[in-house]
Amino acid sequence: MRIGLITPEPGHPLLAATSALLAKEHVVDALDPAGTDPAAPMAVAPLADVYLLKSRTERALDLARDLERRGVPVVNTAAATALCQDRTAMAELALRAGLPFAATRTVGALSAWASHTALSSPVVVKSRYSRRGDLVARVDDPARLRELAAAWPQEPVVVQEFAPNSGWDHKLWAIGDQVFAALRRSELSPGGRGPGLPLDAHELPAGWAGLVRAVGAAFALDVYGVDIIDAGGGTPLIVDVNAFPGIRGQSGAPEALAALTLRRAVGGPG
């Protein structure tokens, strides 16, 4: 069987470990769309039996769409991957599905919104389009808002009310039905993010693992991350959903991804 990786980083720890498992009996090829001529069509031959899409660039998504049109399974699909880049669409879908997602307002360019906004309570301002190095910041006062508006004047943003919490994010990941977990200081904490702390999925509050799987069903994702904060008494509040995150340092994750890949290659469920 042939497995394709659509990624600029085939040496990423999760992909490298998964590839090593699969390569014992199968052929694993890596394809970086960014390394091809943008003006030329992307010719892929021979076709793999399944592709893992760990890239969010438009060229990678175009390649994934083309492969899907040719009948090749892609994990995750281009549509599901693209949806998770748009925080407006993400929030709308989550709320329609009845998921406890943070209420999200789309306000347009940051400078325009800041110029006529009077803050009455802390908010979280995020880039509408998720990407590496995007804007995610807590804003408590007009001075901080003006500072961000000066640095990111034309950035399209969404705004969420700040939900008081412990300052720790529950980083939950799923590969198929298997859920992995860790704790990490919120990037909104004064000291910023620190290293993750291990957390057994069985230690999660009741119903949280099922909630993660419900996110996967709603978003049509096979490999994904869900960021949850405890809004009090074990009440979950989802603040972000990511397609094909790193899932670093999680025992059993490469094995779960290898098994999922082979299932999808033969048309099986995630």
Rank of each mutant, 00 (worst) to 15 (best):
G108R: 13
A114Y: 08
A163I: 15
A112L: 14
P46H: 05
V44W: 06
D169T: 09
A201I: 04
S19E: 04
W168F: 12
L183G: 00
P8C: 01
G267S: 07
A89K: 13
T36S: 06
K24L: 13
H12S: 08
F244R: 07
V125I: 15
P122D: 03
T104S: 10
G108A: 09
W173Q: 07
L262K: 05
G267Y: 09
E187V: 15
L172M: 08
A80R: 00
G4N: 05
W208I: 09
M1W: 11
L5D: 00
T235R: 15
P254H: 02
V159R: 10
R96Q: 14
L63M: 12
F180A: 03
A181I: 07
V107Y: 08
P8G: 02
D169H: 12
A48H: 03
P156A: 06
L237N: 06
L257A: 06
M90Y: 00
V239F: 05
R69M: 12
Q154K: 12
A48D: 02
D86L: 10
S121P: 03
L135M: 09
L95P: 00
E161V: 13
A217H: 13
A163M: 14
V125T: 01
H12A: 10
M1S: 14
I3N: 00
D200C: 09
S127M: 11
V266C: 11
R264V: 15
R69K: 13
E255D: 14
K171D: 04
R96D: 15
L183S: 02
V212L: 07
A30P: 11
L211D: 05
T88E: 15
R59D: 07
A149L: 09
A94K: 06
R263N: 08
L67C: 07
L53C: 00
R264L: 15
E9T: 10
A214H: 07
L99G: 11
S189I: 00
P46C: 07
A30L: 07
S55Y: 02
L221M: 06
S251I: 06
F101S: 01
P38I: 10
R248M: 08
P46D: 03
S130A: 15
I3Y: 01
A259L: 14
S121Q: 14
A118R: 14
S251H: 13
V239Q: 03
T57W: 02
E68A: 13
V212K: 04
L83S: 09
S189R: 02
W173A: 12
A256W: 01
V241W: 06
F101E: 03
L47H: 11
G108W: 11
Q178G: 00
R131F: 09
E255S: 10
S186H: 06
G4Q: 02
V158M: 05
A60P: 08
P164H: 11
A259W: 05
A201R: 04
T88K: 13
L5W: 05
M1N: 07
A256R: 03
L67K: 08
G246C: 02
V72D: 00
R69Q: 13
E255R: 14
V212I: 12
Q160D: 08
N165K: 08
A259M: 10
V123A: 00
V107H: 11
L211Y: 06
V44R: 01
I3P: 02
A112F: 09
A48R: 05
W113K: 05
A64I: 03
A214V: 04
G270V: 03
A17T: 03
W152E: 10
D140E: 14
P142N: 10
A118Y: 01
V44S: 01
D86A: 07
V125E: 00
V157W: 01
A78D: 04
L119C: 09
Y129S: 08
P245G: 09
